[in-house]
Design a protein around this nucleic acid. Sequence first.
DNA 1: ACGATAACAATACGTTCGCATCGCAACCTG
DNA 2: CAGGTTGCGATGCGAACGTATTGTTATCGT
Lengths: 200, 200
Amino acid sequence: MRTYCYRGRMPRVVDHEERRWEIVYALWLVIAQHGIEGVSLRHVAAEAGVSMGRIQHYFGTKEALVLAGCTSLVQSAYGGYQETADAAPRERLLHVVSQQIPRDDAGRMGVSVWYAYVAKSINDSAVRQVLAEARRGAEEECVRLIRADRGAVGDGDGRSALEQARHLLALADGLTLRVLVGDLEPAEAVGMLEVEVGRL
Amino acid sequence: MRTYCYRGRMPRVVDHEERRWEIVYALWLVIAQHGIEGVSLRHVAAEAGVSMGRIQHYFGTKEALVLAGCTSLVQSAYGGYQETADAAPRERLLHVVSQQIPRDDAGRMGVSVWYAYVAKSINDSAVRQVLAEARRGAEEECVRLIRADRGAVGDGDGRSALEQARHLLALADGLTLRVLVGDLEPAEAVGMLEVEVGRL
DNA sequence: ACGATAACAATACGTTCGCATCGCAACCTG
DNA sequence: CAGGTTGCGATGCGAACGTATTGTTATCGT
């Protein structure tokens, strides 16, 4: 049984989280299909099958909506990583660096949206902060996983764990781009990452 | 002395190429400062210090202007590469992969615009074609340079020249992104690329 | 039953957009 | 100088935009 802070009067109750998520998902679809320049409250509302008023009610302004879409994207990626908690370090590492390679349409959409935000981050400091924090987190996690793997198997090839982590992540980013543009097959990209992880 | 195709009548003569380039440069500035969503004929016209009518006269439509900005960007990069024609293969290779790392404000602008187009290429097939062709050209050139370098020094480390080229280019893309977002120093990125090129 | 309030939907408003059009000035040829 | 042509600035239009505001409905303590 939930308790409400305001005593006495209780208004209509809905699942706010669910509502927000529906809107954010529609936002992602619009970004993936028409790019960030194609985002408008009307478009998103139509895609979600809701009214503009609802979006305004939950996010206030368009800028806030777009930013919320960014943080949601980061968190959903992090959620996917946490599901690998009971795997070996090397497996988890491979997941971190190859998770973003688009394998199906859903993954394709995710990466499209991701790169839309990357481009936006150049001129939008709020988005930039979110992405920078996510990247820092991924790098630190990679360093941890590489160290854990070294402890289990042996030491590295002379480079520091940080250098190796940066190398892997940068390579993954570049390969993702290639797959996204369409002149590299997902399997090839994943294969190259497997080789690189295997070399540790 | 120039000759004109239409005989008899000669209209007012201006340097079309120069005019087009002024407008394209202003377009780049707008993209770098406000992103591609911030591009409008009025904005670009104001940045270039010309009228909207002029832009329409030279490019017709906004979409054509944006696409022209993309091809110009590719060609300017290619022009920069051609200036290294009389350098050693290894030097040229390093130039190809590290040229895009932003070192100063001008480079920063170039890369910002580049990534804006990359994001746009996801939903714009015309831009995608231009970028895909550029990337294919870069890859082929890298393969050539790697083979030339092998011929001069010895053979590779077991991977094919194509694999090595892809690895280098993907790594460069990823590192560029990191520098652009701001959590990696240009010198560090270039250093990593030098190490990687040196390993060939 | 009632009144207060959250959760919206609907609408209205002012701005900005891309683009079409018009008109004039610059320019060359005859 | 007359006539024709290009270059392009100025203006206007309809559509689409983000946001503020207003109106309606559902819900629950009293």
